[in-house]
Amino acid sequence: MNTEQTVYIVDDDSDVADSMSMLLESTGLRTEQYHSTEEFLKIPIDRLVGCLILDVRMPDMSGLDLHQEIKRSNANLPVIFVTGHGDVPMAVQAMKNGAVEFLQKPFRDQEFIDCVHRALKTNSEALDEVNRRRSIQARIDSLTKREYEIMRLIAAGNITKAVASKLSISPRTVEIHRARTMEKMQAKTLAQLVQMVVEAEHQEAVG
């Protein structure tokens, strides 16, 4: 697990925030406390690593609104909602919005800790995924125009001869470009290369 991860706690009740923080720190986690959404939104939330524990009801801005704000900022921060109300519609809404968990106070400590660990795991997996995608993109960026062209054609299912005829170059040249592309893309098999191209195209189409 990523050692840089921090558990951010946003709760207007400073005593509850303090107790959560103390419990998590006693298990070796890093925590930071904020006692209002306003205070929390002052820090650059899109760069935070870890997870967020959020009280649903707070005087200045509801936890649900803050969650929406976080999603808008594209931050990768799993959210655990805590509430003293056991408000079912609110829980449903929170889960629809993509919250990891919805805990009702007072909760069992192990349940709480497990929940935080799951959220952190989600966060680190997401981080790994982002990193993997970034590195694929970096490899693609390292290709020459010709290598990229040939990779796309191969990934689309064309055999060497067909590629050669489409590009009006010799099959031998295609073979050389293909070998260099496989090397640059760190693909051990053709299947791996195809998968990377598909993902990259998908990324392009999405974002």
Binding site: V16, S19, L23, E25, K105, F107, F112
Partner: peptide, 13 residues
């Protein structure tokens, strides 16, 4: 629930 939650978590800590 607030103080009860806090008590429970301090105890676990």
């Amino acid at each position: 629930n607030q103080p009860l939650t806090a008590i429970s978590m301090y105890a676990q800590a």
